[in-house]
Design a protein around this nucleic acid. Structure first.
Length: 558
RNA sequence: UGGGGCGUGGCCAAGUGGUAAGGCACAGGUCUUUGGAACCUGUAUUCGAAGGUUCGAAUCCUUCCGCCCCAGCCA
């Protein structure tokens, strides 16, 4: 029996696409689209859809269009459109010349609407919005037919044209599909196709005053673009019969198929456009790109890479059940990527002055430090060492607990890439605060290697030379919410942002530019913030390193 | 009580009648000049529940239970 490679399991959408291709449906062609409405910024949930649409198309030698679903001029702006284009590109996807807009189909959409009217399948209703709601019935009771439902075709045609010409006030009339007011599916109870809006469109200007609704515009837009698989989220499942109804009742050039999947939910994170907008407008965060935001530009500013986000989307899969993915999964994705690709550097966030008593006053040594142990090709750099250093306050304990093996009085530890040092004395100020450590170094340990016969210390500390280090601001971020499933009332995590000033970073960081990413050894991954200036650098903490000591310490406190 | 969906370990997720993949998280361990990384080991007698069909069921049938979505002239 020959060994067979296990076939990688496909998610249900890819499986379906594979079937269609195999069956020769659409001549084996695969064509998807990502259809955002330009009314907000893209977030990690959209990334799932983007990766699915562009990814699945590419895997089956197909294409994916970027199409703006801009049918509601009251909410849409160029600012949003531009941010969406930037974010999809940044994520790593390309649509060549296939950038489309539903608004470019308005004329065609209008013609199709006329076609439905002519065939007795659409009518102009003159009921008010309130009345339409009442006539619609409820979830358990059927609706009633509008008294205008059987208007003569000619009258419908005249009225619809006058709607287009701007002869009516908003709300005076709507165009409705004539389907079934008794349907158990409310979407089929004569859904509205067009409504009058005296609002200029951000791309069409004042050309239109009647705008098509999503349910009507979407299937036609898909058909006009030759979309084969129209992927959307679960809440549109009920709309599929309507989607199909338009496709079946109109002479459209293709028959796209709508398939629904579950949208992404992330623990400790809010992902609804409305809630995100509130965070921005109420100034709870600094903007759409606040590094605590789950928006793509927020994540970018936080230091996330497109690759990590794509890997995350890959890892969580695509299915139909409602899920809440653990943010730990996202954090794992960025750690995994940054571990492989980011340069190591030493930075001291909360400095504690250390004087090496047996080291000459005015001497400086340049020591070799490896840039990335995961990637030898990244090479090495020189780090200056001198008599006065800074180490992390957390790395010293006057009365260390059992499992603490960092620096303590009388104890020897290694300074990374430098020397072993031993703490001889603790200097305190008037109120008993530790302000300085007096230490000695062992010249035989240069580079950090233990000489033959000498045991290696249990701890290795990062450090920085006081005379050479550069001062910096560091912003420590944590999850925005402490509740696993935050809702509208959830308070934000008061420690979601901790700004540290007076941090000391190694001099090689002098040329760092906004968005450059590093690992601060033993601390986490950081990236240069957009607010950073050459003389006043600012770093954002993307994510911490896994911290075993923090876990021990936490269990110690219990 | 109308219609549409969904229920596999703490969180995701394969599996489509032949005896429960994988990832995250967690717990041990090896190694280590990052308490990082890497590597190894462990964690569902069980697939929402109960019946039934079958030599054999997470997969088929029946009933029940639970959760999500829909009553915008939003998308």
């Amino acid at each position: 029996m020959p060994y067979l490679e296990p076939t990688p399991s496909l998610d249900f959408i890819r499986a379906r696409i594979a079937e269609d291709v195999k069956a020769g449906k659409n001549a084996g062609r695969v064509h998807t689209r990502f259809p955002p409405e330009p009314n907000g910024y893209l977030h990690i949930g959209h990334a799932k859809s983007i990766c699915l649409n562009f990814g699945a198309a590419a895997e089956y030698k197909g294409l994916c269009n970027l199409r703006f679903d801009d049918t509601n001029p009251a909410k849409e702006t160029v600012e949003y459109e531009e941010s969406i284009i930037r974010d999809v590109r940044w994520l790593g996807f390309d649509w060549d010349d296939r950038l489309f807009y539903a608004s470019d189909y308005f004329e065609k959409l209008y013609e199709y609407a006329v076609y439905l009217i002519e065939n007795g399948k659409a009518y102009v209703d003159s009921l008010s919005a309130d009345e339409i709601r009442q006539y619609r019935g409820t979830l358990t009771e059927p609706g009633k037919e509008s008294p205008y439902r059987n208007r003569p075709i000619e009258e419908n045609l005249r009225l619809f044209e006058r709607m287009r010409n701007g002869e009516f006030e908003e709300g005076a009339h709507v165009l409705r599909a004539k389907i079934d007011m008794a349907s158990g599916n409310i979407n089929m109870r004569d859904p509205v196709m067009y409504r009058i809006m005296h609002v200029p469109h951000y791309r069409q200007g004042s050309k239109w005053v009647s705008y098509p609704m999503y349910d009507y515009a979407h299937p036609i837009s898909d058909a006009l673009e030759g979309i084969t698989h129209s992927l959307c989220t679960l809440e549109f499942e009920d709309h599929r019969p309507l989607y199909d109804w338009f496709i079946e009742n109109l002479p459209v050039p293709a028959r796209p198929e709508q398939i629904e999947f579950a949208r992404l939910n992330l623990s400790y994170t809010v992902l609804s456009k409305r809630k995100l907008l509130t965070l921005v407008t109420e100034k709870i965060v600094s903007g759409w790109d606040d590094p605590r935001m789950p928006t793509l530009n927020g994540l970018r500013r936080r230091g996330y890479t497109p690759e990590a986000i794509r890997n995350f989307c890959d890892a969580i899969g695509v299915a139909k059940r409602d899920v809440i993915v653990d943010v730990a999964q996202l954090e794992h994705a960025i750690r995994e990527d940054l571990n492989k690709h980011s340069s190591r550097v030493m930075a001291v966030l909360r400095p504690l002055r250390v004087v090496i008593e047996n080291y000459p006053e005015n001497e400086t040594e340049e020591l070799d430090a490896v840039n990335n142990p995961e990637n030898p090709a990244a090479g090495s750099r020189k780090v200056p060492f001198s008599r006065v250093l800074y180490i992390e306050q957390d790395d010293f304990r006057e009365n260390p607990p059992k499992q603490f093996f960092r620096l303590a009085p009388g104890r020897e530890v290694r300074l990374r890439y430098a020397y072993f040092i031993t703490c001889k004395d603790v200097v305190k100020d008037g109120s008993g605060n530790i302000v300085e450590l007096r230490c000695t170094y062992d010249p035989a340990t240069r580079g950090g290697d233990a000489p033959a016969g000498k045991p290696s210390p249990k701890a290795t500390l990062h450090w920085v030379s006081a005379a050479h280090a550069m001062a910096a601001e560091v912003r420590l971020y944590d999850r925005l919410f402490n509740e696993e499933k935050p809702d509208n009332e959830s308070p934000i995590n008061p420690t979601s942002l901790d700004v540290l000033t007076g941090c000391q970073v190694e001099p090689s960081l002098k040329g760092a530019k906004p968005l450059d990413r590093y690992q601060f050894e033993r601390l986490g991954y950081f990236c240069v913030d957009l607010d950073s200036k050459p003389n006043a650098p600012v770093f954002n903490r993307t994510v911490t390193l896994r911290d075993t000591w923090a876990k021990i310490e936490k269990s110690l406190k219990k």
